[in-house]
Design a protein around this nucleic acid. Structure first.
Lengths: 208, 208
DNA sequence: TCCTGGATAGAGCGTTCGTTCTAGTCGCCT
DNA sequence: AGGCGACTAGAACGAACGCTCTATCCAGGA
């Protein structure tokens, strides 16, 4: 009973998550979800009697975990917090390119479409952002950055990653993400214990 | 002939722009647009024979101009580039609060929904982002920052504003935008001519 | 062996979608 | 005066929407 049950439910959640990521909330139909998940409409409403909104909220929570794992993977790949953040931008850029620029942040589109009009979804979105900020904050604070600075920086890191991912998707290029990695690293470096702060470099002026 | 023509056309574009901003592309119907613009369906298709996509592209171009004006207003309000950018975050925060957190960036939602599947819209989106980056770049370069640095910083400023506006909308708070203003100012300061660089401050550690 | 309840299956409801199409109104030019 | 093109008006189309509902399947306990 449990294998089949969780099997179908999970297939539905995963399909929903991917479709919301690529087409947004209004652009994704329940019938398309059931088709993609190889489940019937009856099964979808059996597991999600709250309909499309409940389904979307579950998918957002799934995307939350997925994105958090990617963040953790990037952050764990380097001891230095600035390097760790650029590792995240590198991972995001690779994933984006690998999906032919289709798979951006799994929740942003849905979040924007439903903000202020679907409380169940908004709740999941708010929780996801808080979760991601906490993951980054932990890394920064653990690297010797003060608690308040770490918390504030974490918020900016997440926000900037969101913006850069959008830009990269639109431009079909990894460059916005890599540039963001460099700038975030530079910003983080200004919060380091003073004796280890590196000298800043400035790009050479264009020679005409 | 001209007054009536441009009158109706403009009403349609404006209504579309506002609706796309608040509800996204898929969440906005053409009939709703014609109702809101006080125009008939016939008029809508008369001015936009390309249908919903052409209409959305025109609305995106409208939002492009609108957002660029806000940017210019903020950037012109201070000579110092870092202060100028925080002025932008302040303006954005005020506008967002004034609309009860409804009016975020006028094109982001539509951009995300249609990326990779509606070339006419994508073109307008790409142009808008390039336009905004150019506006910021001009200000930064005009403040003594090197051309390459200014261009790169401008891209990050725009991306970060986008991310912060999303966060502010979700959190129903001006704080993400204000915080972003501070961090962007700090980042910009690291690119200043060396003799004027201010000493960085670090938030006081929490006292338990 | 039969029963029960979770799970599957999909037809069908009323509504709305984007678009097309025909009819009619109005102001200007000849 | 007459006609022409720009614009307005909205009915109607097939398709798709979210959701409800009944019927059926099937493994596990009594």
């Amino acid at each position: 009973m449990k294998t089949t049950t969780t099997g179908t439910r999970e297939r539905i959640v995963r399909a929903t998550s991917r479709l919301l990521q690529r087409q947004g909330y209004e652009g994704t139909g329940i019938k398309q979800i059931s088709r993609e998940a190889e489940a019937t409409l009856g099964s979808v409403y059996h597991f999600f009697p709250g309909g499309k909104q409940e389904l979307a909220a579950a998918a957002i929570r799934h995307g939350d975990q997925e994105f958090a794992e990617l963040l953790r993977e990037g952050l764990d790949s380097a001891a230095d917090p600035a390097e760790a953040v650029t590792a995240c931008t590198r991972l995001l850029a690779e994933a984006l390119r690998a999906s032919d620029w289709q798979d951006g942040c799994p929740i942003t589109t849905t979040a924007l479409e439903t903000v202020g009009r679907a409380p169940v979804i908004e709740e999941a979105v708010t929780a996801a952002f808080a979760h991601w900020r906490a993951v980054v904050e932990e890394k920064l604070h653990g690297s010797g950055i003060g608690l308040t600075d770490a918390r504030e920086l974490a918020a900016t890191v997440i926000n900037t990653l969101e913006g850069a991912e959008l830009a990269a998707q639109v431009a079909r290029s990894e460059e916005p993400l890599h540039l963001t990695g460099r700038h975030l690293a530079r910003l983080i470096d200004t919060y380091r214990p003073p004796r280890t702060a590196p000298a800043f470099t400035t790009a050479a002026p264009a020679v005409p």
